[in-house]
């Protein structure tokens, strides 16, 4: 347990040791504001809620979370520190978990920076704060899944740019899998169970419920199993690729 914590601390302070963290936070907050007020028309809608913000979160995260995840393992491989890390008396999964947790806390900090939006809608009207709280939780859970996927892609290569592109592509598949375009197209060529399975794997399907303040079992199972699967895949990838 102390090794997970050590990796977590090192990784989190690593974000803030370079300007990356601040650049990321500023861009995230700016984009959140832009989407909420201009694209999402928060004022014009005349409804005091944060739907205009949360509806764009999966797409904002699609680009920003792989950017957080890309360095997790590829940096270790590029600089050779992976050899140091994996010969310390600690299990690989502790490093996998510690790194993922550091990314998650970083995203949580980014989300916390959008709290002024929450305050704004409370000033403007009487939103359902329970729904907003669940939406934040859903956004964080989604980031956790993206981070696990992005981390796995980062373990595949020692090049951060490639890790980023792979991360975006892989996350994109899981986001769009549930959209009507993909599902309708799939319905033409595949039987209904396949279409349903595809929809069940999609981030959007589960995220939609959370956005409306609904924590249902499938969403919880999806989040936990996707995160666990991709973290496991990361561990396997790290072990397989470490000698290369």
């Amino acid at each position: 347990m102390s090794d997970i914590l050590a990796v977590f601390r090192r990784e989190l302070s690593g974000y803030f040791a370079t300007p990356i963290a601040y650049v990321f936070l500023i861009i995230f907050v700016m984009l959140s504001g832009l989407f909420t007020f201009y694209v999402g028309n928060l004022y014009e809608r005349g409804i005091a809620d944060l739907q205009p913000f949360f509806i764009y979160v999966p797409w904002l995260f699609l680009v920003l979370v792989p950017a957080i995840a890309m360095r997790l393992w590829s940096e270790e491989r590029r600089t050779g520190t992976i050899e140091l890390l994996l010969t310390l008396p600690s299990a690989t999964w502790a490093a996998v978990g510690g790194k993922w947790l550091a990314g998650l806390v970083f995203v949580a900090v980014a989300l916390a920076c959008t709290v002024p939006l929450w305050i704004t809608v409370n000033y403007l009207g009487e939103p359902d704060n329970g729904v907003i709280a669940v939406s934040y939780l859903g956004a964080l859970a989604l980031a956790g899944v993206y981070l696990a996927i992005g981390g796995c892609m980062s373990a595949l290569t020692s090049n951060q740019v490639i890790a980023f592109v792979l991360g975006v592509a892989a996350c994109f598949i899981f986001v769009t899998a549930g959209t009507p375009i993909v599902l309708d197209g799939l319905r033409e060529i595949a039987p209904e169970p396949v279409v349903e399975a595809m929809a069940a794997l999609s981030a959007i399907t589960h995220y939609d419920g959370l956005q409306r303040g609904l924590i249902d079992l499938p969403a919880v199972v999806w989040t936990l199993s996707m995160t666990a699967f991709w973290l496991f895949a990361t561990g396997v990838t790290v072990e397989l690729k470490k000698g290369a």
Binding site: S13, G14, A17, T79, G80
Partner: peptide
């Protein structure tokens, strides 16, 4: 090559 975390 004595790898270490450079930013630390």
């Amino acid at each position: 090559g004595a790898p270490a975390y450079g930013e630390m």
